[in-house]
């Protein structure tokens, strides 16, 4: 989903930068507030950022015969809400733009918009919706992460189609072209990301139950059933 450096016309690059900036600024505020009010969550914040770091470095082969990578933004969005993921995703994208020549500074706004804003929000929305209808936690986590991943690549396809409409078939023709490169390739990878996010969430619900209850991921009732003796002491 990384649009390469210089591959968006200046007007588009600026527009996406302007669109992304308020989300990132708001995210930085949420992040500092979270760290100030709950210093104990710093470690889990770091772990969420680390998950994005690992997953977006893994280029995996897909059914279309090309390679792409997951985004890892679903986990942090579910745990800490999407604004914070806007910051963690931006940090990852900056690292890749500056050190790996992957993505770029002129396309940072567009890449942040797809991976650090739309992905986390779409995934979080799906997760919340499923939880509201009492879908089991891990199923909701899977689909949240799946949607966060896939929607990121759909946004990238739209961004490129807007910038480079096909001369004969226009925006839709270009969307089909970029969509077949990005979105189709991404479907099995989004499944992988969903499964890995479920794995990490399972490990977290063993190791950091208290934290997940505070963040509202696990219900507090569960603690009463399994952890009262620990609390009583």
């Amino acid at each position: 989903m990384h649009i390469a450096e210089g591959f968006l016309p200046p007007a588009h690059a600026i527009a996406w930068g302007v669109a992304s900036a308020p989300f990132v600024v708001h995210g930085v505020r949420s992040l500092t507030r979270e760290v100030r009010e709950h210093p104990e969550s710093t470690l889990l914040l770091g772990a969420s950022g680390a998950f994005t770091f690992v997953l977006s470095a893994l280029k995996l082969p897909s059914v279309t015969g090309s390679c792409s990578h997951p985004t890892g933004t679903g986990l942090g969005a579910i745990l800490f809400r999407p604004p914070i993921m806007a910051v963690l995703g931006t940090i990852t994208l900056l690292f890749q733009a500056l050190l790996l020549a992957h993505g770029g500074l002129t396309t940072l706004g567009a890449n942040v918009f797809s991976m650090a804003i739309v992905g986390p929000w779409a995934g979080y929305a799906v997760y919340r919706l499923l939880r509201r209808y009492d879908v089991p936690l891990m199923v909701a986590v899977f689909f949240g992460a799946f949607v966060a991943d896939l929607s990121t690549y759909c946004v990238t396809s739209v961004q490129l189609a807007l910038a480079f409409p096909d001369p004969s078939s226009g925006f839709l023709g270009a969307l089909g072209k970029f969509g077949s490169i990005f979105a189709v390739t991404q479907i099995p990878l989004a499944v992988s990301e969903g499964l890995l996010t479920v794995l990490v969430m399972r490990l977290l619900s063993q190791s950091s139950k208290g934290e997940l209850i505070r963040l509202g991921v696990l219900a507090a009732g569960k603690r009463a059933a399994t952890g009262t003796e620990a609390v009583a002491r």
Binding site: M1, F7, K59, S66, F164
Partner: peptide, 15 residues
């Protein structure tokens, strides 16, 4: 198994 990102660059130069 080339990167999808690079394929997109090729598609841009095609369009």
């Amino acid at each position: 198994f080339t990167g999808a990102d690079a394929e997109a660059e090729t598609a841009i130069t095609e369009i």
